[in-house]
Each structure stands twice: as C-alpha cells, then as structure tokens.
C-alpha cells in the first residue's frame, strides 16, 4: 500500500532521515519508535508533504508522493494527527470536523456564494457525517464550543475525529499517548484497535510509550539518528542489542 524506497532527507548538513525503506501492507498496524530526535516526526512530515524529500521515492497505492501538494496527499487517503495538538482552536468543535471534509464537497464557488439548493444538500450531507463522527467520539455535546476550550483528552480525540473526516485509508498517529496516564493509555489501546476495525484503516504509530507499542503493533521499526537500526515483531525488538544500546547506552567492557 505504502512503498518507501531509499528515502533521505537533509536539513542543511544534518541528515534527519537516511536510506529509509518501508513496505506497508493494507490493514497493518505498524509502530515506529526511537529516541527523541531520531527522525520519526520528520518521516511523517515527508510522507504528508510538509517537507519535500531530498532523495528517494514514496508511493501510495501506485501514486507518487514526492512533490505532491500536502492537500493532494490527504485526498489520496493519508491523514495524520500531530504530536503537539494542532486543532483549529478558535473554531467550533463541529467546524473542525466539517472543515476537514473540504475535499469531499461537490460544489463550486458560485453555488456556494449564491447558496443554491444543490449547495445546501451538500452542506446537509457534510453536517450529518460530521455529527455522526462527533457522536462516535463522544464529542457531540461540545459541538458548538471552541476546540481550544476542550480538556486535553477530548482534544486528542477530536484530532483523530478530524483526521478521519478526511476519509483516510492510512492514518498516521504521532504520539497519541503523549501526556496520558496509565489508565488513559489502556483506553487508547482499545480505541485505536477499534477505529482500525471500524474504519478499515492501515495505521502507522509513532510512540514513546513502550507499553502501547508493544501491545498493539504487529511490526516495529526502530530509528536512531535517522537510520533504521532494527525491524521486526515486538518480541524480537525487545531483545535486540542495538535497540537496547540506543535507548540505554552501550555496555562498557572493562
């Protein structure tokens, strides 16, 4: 589904990602872990078109991603959330989700400016879909509130709801468990498993919480300083020497 070959990205002299390869199958739930600054978020920024890769190829269902505009990539079916929540804070919860339907509305500027019947029926459809999404995420009671006024956990949920509103096939979750306590992480695990099934999603997860990653991911990739140092099932990663070194440091031999 997602094919990445020899992806390399440099910021000036710094190589943020080097020679990254990935072949993702439909329906997979893959985790990417690594110490801070390993290049995980950069990878997401490259896939979603915020940065343009220095070298390498990326394709999604046969469509080339390198050089495509960010909104075009979303419309191919790749959506994401952000490590530091980036909701449209002053817009209402409902409008956050409605805005993410942008590409799915069939009208043109003229029908919108004149508010034709065709335009209104499209608006009704989008409104209904958005309300359903909000209800799924238990946010319908807050529909009219500014998104920035929601409590932290609800903002995280709204971010996922907003990402799903774009109609993705591949969902990129950037540290969804950041700032959550153990019981919240437990709920999040169930929740990710549920949206994966319900929305028929393929998911890539960036995470620091080993508990979460080890429990729900089928495959892991470990990054350190932009290079892939290990890949495999959680059980294998747990005992991989290079991974332990990256996280804990090398053993000093006397």
């Amino acid at each position: 589904m997602l094919e990445i070959e020899k992806l390399t990205h440099r910021f000036g002299g710094l190589c943020a990602i080097s020679d990254f390869n990935l072949s993702l199958q439909k329906g997979e739930l893959m985790g990417i872990i690594g110490p801070n600054g390993a290049g995980k978020t950069t990878l997401f920024n490259l896939i979603t078109g915020i940065y343009r890769a220095s070298e390498g190829r990326m394709s999604f269902e046969g469509q080339e991603l390198v050089g495509a505009p960010a909104h075009g990539i979303v419309n191919l079916g790749i959506a994401r959330t952000f490590q530091n929540i980036r909701l449209f804070k002053e817009m209402s919860v409902l409008d956050n989700v409605r805005a993410a339907h942008y590409a799915h509305v069939k009208d043109n500027p003229l029908t919108a400016l004149l508010r034709t019947p065709g335009f209104c029926s499209e608006e009704r459809r989008i409104l209904k879909r958005s309300q359903e999404l909000l209800a799924l995420f238990k946010l319908e009671a807050h529909a009219g509130k500014p998104a920035g006024s929601l409590p932290y956990g609800s903002q995280r949920r709204l971010e996922i709801a907003r990402a799903l509103a774009t109609g993705p096939k591949l969902l990129l979750l950037d540290e969804p468990a950041a700032g959550m306590n153990a019981s919240e992480i437990g709920q999040l695990m169930e929740f990710i498993a549920w949206i994966r099934k319900e929305f028929n999603l393929t998911i890539i997860l960036i995470e620091h919480s080993m508990r979460l990653v080890m429990a729900i991911c089928e495959r892991l990739k470990v990054l350190d300083f932009g290079t892939t140092i290990a890949e495999g099932a959680p059980a294998e990663i747990r005992v991989d020497r290079r991974v332990l070194e990256a996280y804990l440091g090398e053993e000093v031999t006397p």
Binding site: P69, V74, N75, A79, L87, A99, Y102, R162, T166
Partner: peptide, 18 residues
Amino acid sequence: RGILTIREDEIAANLMGV
C-alpha cells in the same frame, strides 16, 4: 471554513485536505 482554517493553522489546514 477553509478560509478560517488558514487563520487558525495553515499547515494543519493543508494536512486536513483544505
């Protein structure tokens, strides 16, 4: 709503398909 998202966060707007 697209115009509003530009005010709020243009990059996030782009990444939400606007």
